[in-house]
């Protein structure tokens, strides 16, 4: 009995809070505002109709480990590990230590390690230490590169293209 009384009291104190959500309709989509009466309540809806497939690593984010995507990745932060995506953009203040793989890799920041991509673009703010394996490379004036640039046509393409563009290789296998 006392337990229930105490429960009643706590609900009373909660009800005295500035914004009580009185109406609880089951079919009403729950809005974040009444759910979290906090100054830090998240303004944006949690699940917009189209969840973004593109990833953005902001300058405040540091990742230690592996980063993989079947879409695009834009990096402004720091990554200690390997990155693999369709299109990787390494921003001007970004730092990547590890291998960057992709169909298209554009570097404006710092990469320490290796780049393996069909199309590589080193802009004039790029600092690249390590080897670049490419089919098509652009190096703008001002880019720093310390390593070998090696074109590779046979090997670089298939392992990259397979998980990305060929979701069902059964037909190809059947043809063989």
């Amino acid at each position: 009995m006392t337990m229930f009384n105490r429960n009643d009291k706590t609900t009373d104190t909660n009800a005295a809070a500035p914004a009580p959500p009185p109406s609880v309709k089951p079919e009403q989509p729950p809005t974040p505002a009444p759910a979290a009466p906090r100054p830090q309540a998240y303004a944006q809806p949690i699940a917009s109709g189209q969840a973004p497939a593109v990833s953005h690593i902001s300058k405040a984010l540091k990742i230690t480990g592996q980063l993989e995507s079947t879409e695009d990745i834009q990096i402004e932060g720091e990554i200690d590990g390997d990155v693999r995506a369709v299109s990787v953009k390494v921003g001007a203040n970004a730092k990547v230590k590890g291998t960057v793989r992709g169909d298209e890799v554009q570097v404006s920041g710092q990469v320490e390690g290796k780049i393996e991509a069909k199309k590589v673009i080193l802009t004039r703010t790029a600092r690249m230490s390590g080897d670049v394996i490419h089919q098509d490379i652009t190096i703008e004036s001002g880019a720093f590169i310390d390593g070998h640039c090696r074109p590779e046509f046979g090997k670089a393409a298939p392992p990259l293209a397979k998980p990305v563009h060929a979701p069902k290789p059964s037909s190809a296998e059947a043809a063989e």
Binding site: A53, V54, S55, G65, E71
Partner: peptide
């Protein structure tokens, strides 16, 4: 993004 997998520490 939805297509992204990260293994490791995010800070």
């Amino acid at each position: 993004g939805t297509a992204t997998t990260v293994t490791g520490v995010l800070d």
